[in-house]
């Protein structure tokens, strides 16, 4: 069977996971793939943990990724990375944004999250949102920058990305978002070009 590529995006309600995963899934489709994307909306998302499974390849059956089979785990929040870590294996590339959001009624963020993630995987890359925002026009484009970063792990033509971004970002922000995407791609080149 042809290899299915699995991306799991996770974060907290309101961080923009749905739009980011929409762009990724559309770009996968425009590149000629079969695609499935699975997420849950509803009560559990009022401030809760949000996830989106994206799977693409020649023919995709299950909309859901199996444990240990994510090729990329992309997380917008540190603790959420650990919550979903079971979907990752030693060979999964983990991209984690250095953002901490306390759950409701929790005052102290759990200690040792970053160290634990680093201990579990050699293939983890932490993104500092503050320094990344400095490199783009508008902090609202941050998620598209991160999509640019994970675009490095897949092989989609430029037109597919542009078409997908154009379709999903608010009218009038395409140019800014496209540049933000390029910034993310550059970041991938800087950080990962020595990886096999």
């Amino acid at each position: 069977m042809d290899k299915i590529f699995n991306v799991l995006m996770v974060g907290v309600g309101g961080q923009g996971i749905i739009m980011a995963s929409d762009i990724f899934a559309l770009a996968a489709m425009y590149s000629g793939n079969d695609v499935k994307k699975s997420e849950i909306h509803g009560m559990s998302q009022r401030g809760g943990s949000v996830f989106s499974h994206i799977r693409f390849g020649k023919k995709v059956y299950s909309p859901v990724i199996s444990h240990g089979e994510a090729d990329v785990l992309f997380s917008l929040e540190e603790m959420e990375t650990l919550r979903w870590i079971g979907y990752a294996s030693e060979t999964t590339d983990i991209i984690c944004m250095k953002t901490r959001i306390n759950p409701v009624m929790v005052e102290t963020y759990p200690a040792g999250i970053e160290e634990e993630i680093r201990g579990l995987s050699k293939r983890v890359f932490f993104v500092d949102p503050v320094s990344l925002i400095d490199r783009i026009e508008n902090k609202k484009f941050l998620n598209v920058t991160l999509i640019g970063l994970i675009s490095g792990f897949v092989d989609f033509p430029e037109e597919s990305w542009e078409k997908a971004i154009k379709e999903k970002v608010p009218a009038g922000t395409f140019e800014g978002n496209r540049k933000a995407f390029e910034t993310g791609k550059k970041l991938f080149m800087e950080e990962f070009n020595d990886m096999e």
């Binding site: 559990s44 401030g47 809760g48 603790m79 650990l82 079971g86 990752a88 409701v104 579990l120």
Partner: peptide
């Protein structure tokens, strides 16, 4: 066969839904 998933022992506080 499938890859073995990673596993953490750190207890994570849940994120229950809440009134906005």
């Amino acid at each position: 066969p499938r890859e073995k998933g990673l596993h953490t022992e750190i207890p994570l506080p849940p994120r229950p839904p809440s009134l906005c």
